[in-house]
């Protein structure tokens, strides 16, 4: 039983990280039907920003939760700025172009950002300090769960609740939902489309930044390539849950995290990815639009 719980929470932690990144994919797709392949790179850039800022703060002699908060804030701002800029530079000029053009532009952006970090920083792995607080009560009440895992799960849950409230109840959220439903109609009733799309990129990037800081602290090392692999997994999670659907991305990410964790735990880590992708294929055969996705209605 303890083994099962350990695997369950291990999978939940991994799923939470996937979810934070998957949300960025699914939100952008929901609004402009673009798969933003550069999204994984935003996560990676956030990790690098966090490393630089936390090292600077450590040089100043700062310790404790303040470092985490300042680092996270810097990573979020920097990542959001990158997300915003990427949209303006690579996608906005192509908004009226055929759908394949922005896709290629996204792949190009991803490669550019990877190489940019590799050249500006290093291609080696870099150690990342553990910024997450060591919560002693976790070890006491939840022996099968590490403090960092607990912190990741709770933070992710809070971020999800915040995002739901934002989308349900704020003007910005309403504008985003309206744009997702019908861009032209939203424009006609006075929604500033460009602003709404920018906001979507900013929010998605900020979520990826939270994921970047959490996972880098948890794993303890980063390099320029981490965004690619995490991005592929998160994209898979978004498709699994139904791309365009926000609760779907979260559910898909958790299902993916659990599948990988249990496949390693009970079968063999040799087949971790095999199980994850077999599951993806099976779900897409039964429900072609994903777990919670709605079948696409052709707009006329």
């Amino acid at each position: 039983m303890e083994y099962f719980l350990e695997l369950f929470f291990g999978g939940l932690t991994r799923g939470s990280i996937y979810a934070l990144i998957a949300l960025g994919y699914t939100m952008v797709y929901g609004i402009i039907e673009l798969i933003n392949f550069a999204h994984g790179e935003i996560y990676m850039i956030a990790s690098f920003t966090a490393l630089i800022v936390s090292s600077l703060l450590a040089l100043q002699g700062m310790t404790g939760p303040a470092v985490l908060l300042l680092t996270a804030a810097a990573a979020i701002i920097f990542a959001a700025a990158h997300g915003f800029t990427v949209e303006k530079v690579a996608y906005k000029p192509l908004r009226q172009a055929p759908r394949l053009s922005p896709l290629i532009s996204a792949i190009g952006m991803s490669i550019f950002l990877q190489n940019y970090v590799m050249l500006a920083q290093t291609s080696d792995f870099l150690p990342f300090p553990n910024l997450l607080p060591d919560l002693p009560f976790v070890a006491e009440y939840l022996p099968f769960l590490g403090a960092t895992e607990f912190f990741i799960i709770v933070t992710t849950a809070l971020v999800m609740v915040g995002l739901t409230l934002l989308i349900k109840f704020t003007r910005m959220g309403k504008a985003m939902r309206a744009t997702a439903q019908d861009r032209n109609m939203a424009m006609l009733v006075g929604v500033d489309i460009n602003r709404t799309i920018s906001n979507t990129f900013i929010i998605g990037s900020a979520l990826a930044a939270v994921g970047g800081v959490l996972i880098a602290s948890h794993i303890g090392r980063i390099n320029f390539y981490i965004g690619f692999i995490a991005g592929i997994k998160a994209f898979t999670a978004a498709v699994l849950g139904g791309i365009g659907s926000i609760p779907g991305a979260v559910l898909g990410a958790l299902v993916l995290g659990w599948t990988e964790s249990f496949a390693t735990g009970y079968v063999s880590s040799d087949y971790e990815d095999v199980f994850a992708f077999v599951l993806l294929v099976l779900i897409l055969i039964v429900r072609p639009s994903g777990l919670l996705g709605r079948p696409a209605v052709q707009k006329v």
Binding site: L7, G11, R14, E149, I219, I229, S261, G265
Partner: peptide, 20 residues
């Protein structure tokens, strides 16, 4: 006796398996 995927996001599950 197991293989892992290089570059994966984390290896918590395999560590748990070793522990177990």
């Amino acid at each position: 006796f197991e293989g892992i995927t290089p570059g994966a996001v984390d290896y918590t599950a395999i560590v748990q398996k070793v522990k177990f």
